[in-house]
Amino acid sequence: MAKLSFREALNQAMDEEMARDERVFLMGEEVGHYDGAYKVSQGLLAKYGERRVVDTPITELSFAGVGIGASMVGLRPIIEMMTFNFCILALDQIWNNAAKMRLMSGGQYNVPIVFRGPNGAAHMLSAQHSQATENWFCNVPGLKVVSPATPGDGKGLLKAAIRDDDPVIFLESEIMYNDVGEVPDAEDHVLALGKAHVVREGKDVTLIGYSHGLKAVVAAAEALAKDGIDAEVIDLRTLRPLDMETIARSVRKTHRVVTVEEGWPFGGIGAELAYRIQHALFEYLDAPVTRVTQLDMPMPYAENLEAACLPNARDVIAAARAVSYRT
């Protein structure tokens, strides 16, 4: 298996899909001549030309709309958001058009489009540029939301997202673009959307995470193992639709759940998971479902405060111990 960085894996996914299907094109701020703000689109302009790698003005709402329109008439756009903080400007197009067009046209139009880019806190970007937006998108019926945690998953899931006939919000992590991981050599590595992945099997407590947050989860699981708590780790991979089957299988075994996310707590991914788990698996629970989240406040700029604000392995360990009645 090849070892690739996250940005290389994503680049490969787009490259392969553009080569495979000429309807696929990339559009966004600085995706072309600058090779992408985070170099994810490196080399694509040279390879596919300006018709298929389109630099846009700084007008998220407009190019999101152009992309949705293009998808309605048969193309398969990938819209790069320089970060999802900027994507807030495009929410009207995404919520009102991308998510609803298929329903409101009575199925005449579908919207095979991918909005991708970095999401969540990176490093000292302060309150306005550190947002974890996943729960906003997950709240909208009609959207699929994907957030990979490894380069290999990034490639397989992005390829699946590009091939999907519905709008997909594809959330990457700026601080993971340099992460190196194994990427299957298979000629066509595609992972199914809507399937979670059991990263580590265990019997004592289920830890659920995704994207960058999964790092804290895996580290916590290793520390807990030394302490005699055998944690099962689930990487959600897709946040909507949720793979409740995989989660249920795990909870029936462990009876304890900790959810981990880097977004805010109120109405977050953990809130949804906690609801679904208690509703479907009530009598399998030996402890309240517990979540670990970012603090309920705008992100501070200072490095130490940012770190204090974000969940880390220590928080996950404490939560796992609490639900295991091992405090």
């Binding site: 402890a287 517990t290 989240t293 406040m297 405060l305 969940p311 220590r314 996950v316 404490a318």
Partner: peptide
């Protein structure tokens, strides 16, 4: 406030109890 609530484990626990 940030100090009082770790946002993660400690808060999660209280919340879990309440829930």
């Amino acid at each position: 406030e940030a100090g009082a609530e770790t946002g993660a484990a400690a808060e999660a626990e209280t919340e879990a109890e309440a829930e």
